[in-house]
Amino acid sequence: MLLPAELRGRLERLSLVTRRRVIAQWAGRHRSRHKGESLDFADYRQYVPGDDFRRIDHNLWARLGVLLVRQFEAEEELPLRVVLDVSKSMGFYRKAEIGKVLAGMIVYLGLAGGDRVQVYAVGGTSLQVGPAGRHLSRWPQLEAWLEQLPTGGGGELAPTLRKLVGEGTTRGALILVSDLLSPDFGSALDGLGIGAGGIILHVLGEEELDPGLAGDLRLADSESGGEVEVSTSEEAMRRYRAALEAFATEAAARARRAGLDYVLVPATDDAPMNVLSALSRTEALV
């Protein structure tokens, strides 16, 4: 079971908020880029024949002598695409385990909000399309699919994500759960800057945040097989921390530039609550 009952109860009381309007096929709870029938006033426009007389603002016509009709927000469902990185690097330091919990958490939030949730798994160059759902009744299928995902594969992340973003006509929000440990993580994030925004949950293991390596080592990349010789001196560790900080900073900057919220998540048991707190602070959750 990915999510404990307590967490699920809490998630049911929360809603995802998108920064951009959504374009969807079905009515929902999220503001649409289309004007609709909701109670929320959106704008005025010139009256054209055929408009509903009931929407002519008579006060403005009296004061200004111009026929303007009132437009209201349309509320549509949020197409939510949850992408979980299951590349080989996610198999270290509980990242895959925690990543599945976080992905499940987002899925559960979407299903509880009546959004159309589609799950994906990216393993480097491979893309697995998972089940979709609009209601919590689909949660068991999506949960089971997430749970059985193995880690493996590697390679560049950007082409795969680009393919994912370009898929379909609906353009909703995208949640990416990944360690972003791919040389092209910047361009991958840049490519996500369309649609209704989204969230980058950047999962890193504790050993990556504070390495415990010591001595003269030959480090091998789990995905590419590349090797680098490292002497874990104080200077080398200082350089590593600087590189890590630059990495996180750049990821956050690129995410923001793409209109995405960014949350750096240490892969610990506290990760779900930390993520909820962070999203609340960014008002992505209400």
């Binding site: 080989k88 690097s89 996610m90 198999g91 270290f92 330091y93 990242k95 360690d179 440990l181 791919s182 040389p183 293991g205 990556e208 390596l213 001595g215 003269d216 080592l217 030959r218 480090l219 091998a220 990349d221 789990s222 995905e223 590419s224 590349g226 090797e227 680098v228 010789e229 490292v230 002497s231 001196s233 200077e235 080398a236 560790m237 350089r239 590593y240 600087a242 590189a243 890590l244 630059a246 990495f247």
Partner: peptide
């Protein structure tokens, strides 16, 4: 030169930036 012990890590992306040429 001594052959260093090989340790597999998720990625060497960050370690490449921390590497100090020692030999």
């Amino acid at each position: 030169r001594s052959r260093r012990p090989r340790v597999e890590v998720p990625s060497i992306m960050l370690w490449e930036k921390a590497e100090i040429p020692v030999s």
